[in-house]
Design a protein around this nucleic acid. Structure first.
Lengths: 120, 120
DNA sequence: ATACATTGTTTACACATGTAATCGAACGAG
DNA sequence: CTCGTTCGATTACATGTGTAAACAATGTAT
């Protein structure tokens, strides 16, 4: 199962607000993207068919929930991305990503703590 | 211009060995992927049409070179990926990626040095 | 009952991508 | 010269994706 670019937007929103009705999803995505309701409904329908989302009837509305864990999807997508773009060698990728990111002092500290813990 | 998953494999190889002839590309990719020569030739042709590669005639062979910098493509792909999967917030993404990567002690040191330099 | 609005499903179309065969031109060997 | 091989271009087909309209069913208001 592969989540497409546009579908990630939908999934992220539902991960953060599930369980949620289509009308809510549509309302929020219409604000941030130039998608018609029809487009969003199609994406929801396809995600259900793919097995990423489940829909349970509530009256005639469907309430959507995620059937896959965000962490699992993120991990899979991340690995796939790193493999593809960096040929599987993680470290140069991370160096590059860190270098090109704007991080706060707190965030830098947090990363350093994480690296410390990995060293032991 | 968007480089597809399979095309990244081709681009990575050419970035590392350019300028290079199609026969060389085909030979090397055939070892690592179950692609026919026809498949690889198509990808090369599409990448030229996209503007990612250039091809200069040498006799009747084409010599392929990249028209785009690896660093630029990586940066663009990385940002796009982070935006899509993590909703634009880089730090949690990096934490996640670091946490799920197997890094050597040297690589950890290198990352820490980079973070140190970003703090100043 | 009828008309309208809402909701999910189905249909539509264009393009990109993965995979590869086929074709036409150029080259080399006999 | 002919024939076979090689090389890039063209063609092919299936699937996925982006975008959205159209349709059918259900609910609400008059």
């Amino acid at each position: 199962m592969q989540i497409s670019d546009a579908e990630w937007t939908v999934m992220n929103l539902i991960w953060e607000s599930q369980p949620t009705a289509a009308s809510d999803v549509i309302e929020q995505l219409a604000e941030t993207h130039a998608w018609s309701a029809a487009t969003i409904k199609t994406m929801l329908h396809r995600l259900v068919r793919k097995g990423a989302l489940s829909a349970t009837s509530s009256g005639r509305k469907y309430i959507y929930s995620c059937r896959v864990k965000r962490a699992d999807c993120v991990l899979h997508a991340s690995r796939s991305f790193l493999d593809r773009v960096f040929g599987g060698d993680t470290a140069p990728a991370l160096l590059h990503l860190v270098e090109s990111s704007k991080l706060t002092a707190d965030q830098i500290d947090e990363l350093k703590k994480l690296l410390d813990s990995m060293e032991r």
